[in-house]
């Protein structure tokens, strides 16, 4: 595994999955939720949409640290040696108005059926600046990749 192979493997995995597990916390209470994600080309941002009334949004408002888990397991024994899982960690950042549309376009290109969800004023586009990816394969091989901020 080299730098470029790791990058491409992570990119392919993210592009092949619709959903990721998002991890947040508030006041020491952990919380996990399923979100539809899209990543920017450099993998330095992961974006998702959420209603502003949700617990995940509330948690991220209180504590911007977030992690995602994306994997291709299929609930079979083979997953232990065939599946790949990627954890991405980072921090929620404010998206300037001028950049909102570009990120929304990236997101809707991945999930076009969520167009009306994206358009609702009560929906937030959340952008997580990723600092590190951690890839696990073949049961316990673990590689880490830092991305350009």
């Amino acid at each position: 595994m080299d730098n470029q192979t790791l990058f491409t493997t992570i990119q392919d995995l993210i592009d092949s999955r619709q959903l990721a597990v998002l991890c947040t916390q508030k006041d020491g209470h952990p919380y996990a939720s399923l979100v539809a994600v899209a990543a920017t080309q450099k993998l330095n941002r992961i974006i998702f949409l959420t209603p502003k009334t949700t617990r995940k949004y509330d948690n991220l408002t209180a504590c911007p640290n977030a992690a995602f888990l994306i994997n291709n397991s299929e609930n079979r024994t083979e997953d232990f040696y065939q599946a790949t899982a990627v954890t991405a960690t980072g921090t929620v950042i404010h998206v300037p108005d001028a950049e909102q549309q570009a990120l929304t376009d990236i997101y809707l290109a991945r999930h076009p059926h969520l167009e009306s969800f994206a358009a609702a004023p009560t929906t937030a586009l959340v952008c997580v600046k990723i600092s590190k990816y951690i890839l696990v394969n073949r049961f316990q091989n673990v590689f880490e990749l830092a991305v350009t901020p």
């Binding site: 508030k26 006041d27 009334t53 617990r55 969800f117 929906t123």
Partner: peptide, 17 residues
């Protein structure tokens, strides 16, 4: 409760745990 008339969601306030 919070009523989101844009998305059609009713959210009930609950404690985090």
């Amino acid at each position: 409760v919070t009523v989101d008339g844009y998305l059609g969601i009713v959210t009930c306030e609950t404690s985090p745990d």
